[in-house]
């Protein structure tokens, strides 16, 4: 029961309260780039969720099984980024071989994900928050992916409608997207303080 509550709290906190896009500014690049259409955004979100869950779990295991026992914390960043790049490659190969249709739908996003800061960012935050059990790390990683998907889909929905609006010339493109993101992040601020 107790662990369940902790996990649920962790999940809600990473999805809404500490949403990576709106409070930690992670994953802004794809957020600006691909969030033009809802179906694309959703595909990207799913791909990120998949990879971030894998990467979060793997880096957590790597940290606790190899780096900390062997006092190799200095190589942490190098190892993390290699694990993430490796995970992305693996996912790509696996999908291409076994789920060709799925690969076609979000295969194009996969190479982009290696340099998505949301993934490395989440691994670093798991380390920073001193999460010490595997289950919580997995839930946090999965939640981070869901949070990213929610953010990017909300944004895509708004941008689809924004196409019909008369935006001043100078604000077209990135500026209006950023301002919208600002307003959205204000809305997400309402979630802070939910967990005591």
């Amino acid at each position: 029961m107790d662990t369940l509550t902790t996990l649920l709290l962790a999940f809600i906190s990473i999805v809404l309260i500490n949403n990576l896009v709106f409070t930690k500014f992670l994953g802004i690049c794809p957020y600006l780039g691909v969030s033009g259409r809802i179906d694309m955004a959703f595909g990207m979100g799913l791909a990120v969720t998949f990879v971030v869950t894998l990467a979060g779990t793997l880096t957590f295991l790597l940290d606790h099984l190899i780096l900390i026992p062997m006092n190799l914390e200095v190589t942490r960043y190098v190892c993390y980024i290699l694990v993430i790049a490796g995970a992305v490659q693996l996912v790509e190969m696996y999908l291409r071989k076994f789920f060709p249709t799925l690969y076609d739908s979000f295969g194009i996003f996969l190479p982009l994900i290696t340099t998505n800061c949301a993934i490395l960012g989440l691994c670093l935050f798991i380390n920073l928050w001193q999460i010490d059990n595997l289950l919580e790390a997995v839930v946090l990683s999965f939640g981070a992916g869901i949070g990213f998907t929610i953010a990017i889909c909300i944004m895509a929905g708004i941008r689809e409608n924004l196409d019909l609006a008369d935006v001043p010339d100078a604000l077209k493109g990135a500026p209006i997207t950023l301002i919208t993101a600002g307003l959205l992040s204000m809305a997400f601020m309402g979630f802070t303080g939910m967990i005591k």
Binding site: D169, L178, I179
Partner: peptide, 21 residues
């Protein structure tokens, strides 16, 4: 807070756009 960051950068980019146009 995050709001300030997003909106300031948005307005700055708009300014840069306006100048280049």
């Amino acid at each position: 807070m995050p709001v300030g960051a997003f909106i300031t950068l948005g307005l700055l980019l708009a300014l840069v756009n306006a100048i280049t146009v």
